[in-house]
């Protein structure tokens, strides 16, 4: 977990170049790791063991949190780690352990299916990159108007977006009910 340190109050302007370099380095570091781990989730080296995928996914999420920090979304980085990596993925791990499914016999993947999948995924990426390519060439980030800290985000969340926020609360209630209904051994 790399936390981007807020520039100290007494930091002179000469330092900004260094900071930029640092950011560049961190970006590539996290970006490459994100993608590598992401690939490993999909094409896990131990194919028969989904637990490995979970761990790689956790690592992907952590690296993404790093990218979030680089983008000044501090609160989200924390949430990403706490909720996503820390809770959601643990659920995955639990289920994998519960079901003990690693002995699952896998039919061999057919070459056509493989090729087709790669083709479709490639097509989607190509489509995305075409849109990106057509967009203006790498616009630099402007100075952030507001930092994505807890306070500002909370303010927006509870004023402008309070309705979706409340809808989400209903959604979570639904999820709770649903999990209880589906998960309980025998309801009476």
């Amino acid at each position: 977990m790399a936390a981007r340190r807020a520039p100290p109050a007494n930091c002179p302007a000469a330092q900004s170049l260094n900071l930029e370099l640092m950011q560049e380095f961190l970006f590539y570091f996290f970006a490459i790791l994100t993608l590598v781990f992401g690939l490993l989730v999909v094409a896990s080296p131990s194919r028969r063991n989904p637990a490995a995928s979970v761990f790689f996914l956790v690592l992907t999420l952590v690296c993404l949190a790093g990218l979030f920090v680089l983008l000044h979304a501090f609160f989200l980085a924390a949430v990403q780690i706490i909720v996503y990596a820390g809770a959601v993925m643990v659920l995955f791990l639990f289920v994998i352990m519960f079901l003990n499914v690693q002995q699952e016999s896998h039919r061999p993947r057919t070459g056509t299916r493989m090729a087709l999948s790669v083709l479709i995924a490639g097509a989607i990426v190509a489509l995305l990159s075409r849109a990106l390519g057509a967009a203006s060439a790498s616009p630099a980030f402007p100075q952030p108007a507001v930092e994505g800290g807890t306070g500002p985000l909370g303010t927006v969340l509870f004023t402008e977006y309070v309705l979706p926020f409340e809808v989400i609360s209903v959604l979570i209630l639904v999820a709770i009910i649903g999990v209880v209904c589906l998960g309980k051994k025998e309801l009476k």
């Binding site: 992401g38 999909v42 995924a121 490639g122």
Partner: peptide, 12 residues
Amino acid sequence: LLFGLGVLGVLL
């Protein structure tokens, strides 16, 4: 790219 990887995973 990450999205593409996800799609690939869903398909594969």
